[in-house]
């Protein structure tokens, strides 16, 4: 059964090749896409229902039924040590797809010189397992289904 993966935020759907970090651009972690968020405060929601297996101020990994989906808010944002991010959940919590997990303000992060484009990755899935549901360049809302994992 295919699992639908929701956009964690409003924004523009972008190809992973646009992400200026080869770990994401070359899909080393797995396939997916990126969301280019608005430059204003946004709340990142859970892309799937499941357990928060990893949680950082700037990233969340949700696992369910053998699937694992990562949302990485911006790039190199680990160096901010959490500044500019507010966690609404804790590691180990169970979440429903669409539930708010992290608040952040991409305009602040970008003003600090870091990219805000946000990879959404099906960890260690095969490229062929992914079906993108909306074309690159589409403006989506938080909670819009953007790809499926078979």
């Amino acid at each position: 059964m295919a699992l639908q993966v929701l956009s964690p935020m409003p924004g523009r759907v972008a190809n992973l090749s646009e992400v200026p970090d080869p770990m994401f651009a070359e899909a080393m972690l797995g396939p997916g896409l990126a969301i280019d968020p608005p430059r204003s405060p946004v709340t990142a929601v859970a892309p799937i229902s499941g357990t928060i297996a990893s949680l950082f101020p700037h990233a969340m990994g949700i696992e369910a039924d053998g699937y694992s989906v990562l949302v990485h808010l911006g790039l190199e944002t680990v160096q901010l040590n959490g500044e500019g991010f507010t966690l609404l959940k804790a590691k180990g919590d169970t979440v429903v797809a669409g539930e708010p997990v992290i608040e952040w303000d991409p305009s602040v992060i970008e003003a600090g010189g870091l990219p805000v484009i946000t990879p959404l990755i099906a960890i260690q899935a095969e490229a062929g397992q992914i079906t993108q549901l909306v074309p690159d360049g589409t403006q989506v809302e938080a909670g819009t289904a953007v790809f499926e994992i078979a």
Binding site: M23, M28, L29, A53, S54, G61, S68, L70, I123, Q124
Partner: peptide, 8 residues
Amino acid sequence: VLQVIVGG
């Protein structure tokens, strides 16, 4: 500098 990609 090396980055070792290991996931979660």
